[in-house]
């Protein structure tokens, strides 16, 4: 007989820790993608495929956490933030991992030879993407302090500043990718199609990170 009469079940499931974990996994997917690009550039297609499978696993892991959050955040839970905004943020964040998975698959299609200048541009873009991800992870890590301070003005201002920084880097990335696109159209058609696919997916990933950052701000700042 357990003989326990506890009132502390009133403390319901808190989705915030899992949300941060989900963000970290999305960040991990982008890091793997950057590694995959390096392997692709060097023509190591076996390595490209291996990393692709790893991204698959990471995306699945993100899906499991997403499902857990949705299953456990029941109607009866009262959270300090709007539950539906929180779900929207989760879905937007989840798109990051999905897009990484798509791009990882595209990269495993075939190796194309392109001028060194294009690789150089791509490397610069990936470097900025890495910076964007680091900033995003830093932003999401504010969750704990936001909750601890019960959304104090200082914390909220810091979040706001972080989002502005992310928007700035995303804009820079957008311009870099547009310049890359112009160069891509100088390539022969088969190469151009694949390279454009890379560029467009990278734009979408960067945009998803920016969207998630904005949603994060909306969840915690109302």
């Amino acid at each position: 007989m357990k003989f326990i009469r506890s009132v502390f079940d009133v403390f319901g499931y808190s989705p915030f820790e899992d949300l941060v974990k989900h963000a970290e996994i999305c960040g991990r997917a982008i890091e793997l993608l950057i590694e995959q690009f390096a392997a692709y550039k060097d023509g190591k297609m076996d390595e490209v495929k291996r990393i692709g499978k790893e991204i698959d696993k990471v995306e699945h892991e993100a899906d499991l956490i997403k499902r857990k959050i949705m299953d456990k955040t029941s109607e009866s839970l009262v959270l300090p933030v709007d539950k539906y905004k929180l779900f929207n943020f989760l879905f937007t964040q989840d798109v990051i991992a999905n897009r990484c998975e798509t791009l990882a698959k595209v990269m495993s299609f075939k190796k194309v030879e392109v001028p060194e200048e294009l690789w150089k541009d791509l490397e610069d873009i990936l470097k900025n993407l890495k910076e964007l991800v680091a900033m995003y992870e830093h932003l999401v890590n504010h969750t704990s302090s936001l909750l601890k301070t019960s959304f104090s003005k200082r914390e909220v201002e810091e979040v706001s500043n972080h989002v502005s920084e992310i928007e700035r880097v995303e804009e820079k990335l957008g311009s870099m990718l547009m310049r890359l696109n112009k160069k891509i159209f100088d390539l022969e058609p088969s190469k151009a199609i694949l390279m454009r696919e890379f560029a467009m997916n990278l734009i979408k990933i960067a945009k998803s990170v920016e969207d998630s950052a904005r949603m994060f701000k909306s969840v915690f700042m109302g």
Partner: peptide, 26 residues
């Protein structure tokens, strides 16, 4: 026991607690 439930809800309403399950309160 009910006073502590009330107090926990009060702290929660002041955005102090990450999650409160209203089903259990019911």
């Amino acid at each position: 026991t009910h006073t502590i439930v009330g107090s926990v809800i009060g702290v929660g309403l002041a955005r102090g607690i990450a999650s409160i399950d209203l089903r259990i309160v019911g």
